[in-house]
Amino acid sequence: MKPLNSELVRVQVFTTYLPSHSRPEDNQYTFAYTITIHNDSELTVQLLSRHWLITDANDKVQEVRGDGVVGEQPLIEPGTHFRYTSGATLSTPVGHMKGSYTMIVADEAQTEPSTQPAFDVAIPAFTLHTPTALH
């Protein structure tokens, strides 16, 4: 099976500051981000892993790698989407995240996912900021 063009999988991001989970006096600013992954292809895809670079205003970078997202390795059918919410904590009121998802085309023969050709879907940089940080 040929690899899928990663441009057929789109990522949208919505972020929000969580003041109830933050402690600015301790330089702890917590944000939620909701990701929607759209499968615009004609093939079912599966998200296997994620890679994040989370950067605060002091250029401190946290690198996160792991299997799936929020405990799942979702299958995303053609023309549908998968949405999840997660979070990140920064030591500054402003920062940004970017990363990628490693995905495969889901094989109807139920071949072991690790034997399938993988492709990466880029997650463009998005800003995390408190309501008053950017004016």
Results as ranks from 00 to 15, higher is better:
Lys2Glu: 10
Pro3Ser: 13
Asn5Met: 06
Arg10Thr: 15
Val11Ile: 15
Gln12Thr: 14
Val13Gly: 05
Phe14Val: 14
Thr16Leu: 09
Thr16Val: 10
Tyr17Pro: 02
Arg23Ser: 12
Asp26Gln: 14
Asn27Phe: 14
Gln28Arg: 14
Tyr29Gln: 06
Phe31Met: 09
Tyr33Met: 08
Ile35Glu: 02
Thr36Asn: 09
Ser41Cys: 03
Gln46Glu: 13
Leu47Gln: 01
Leu47Gly: 01
Ser49Pro: 02
Trp52Thr: 11
Ile54Gly: 03
Asp56Ile: 05
Val61Phe: 03
Val61Ala: 09
Glu63Pro: 06
Gly66Gln: 05
Val69Ser: 05
Glu72Met: 12
Pro78Leu: 07
Gly79Tyr: 12
His81Ile: 05
Phe82Lys: 03
Arg83Thr: 15
Tyr84Asp: 06
Thr85Pro: 03
Ser86Gly: 11
Gly87Gln: 05
Thr92Lys: 06
His96Met: 10
Gly99Lys: 01
Ser100Arg: 15
Met103Gln: 01
Ile104Met: 01
Pro113Asn: 04
Ser114Thr: 12
Ser114Gln: 12
Ser114Asn: 05
Ser114Arg: 09
Gln116Asn: 14
Pro117Val: 07
Asp120His: 04
Asp120Ser: 10
Phe126Lys: 07
Leu128Ser: 06
Leu128Gly: 05
Thr130Trp: 02
Leu134Trp: 08
Leu134Ile: 15
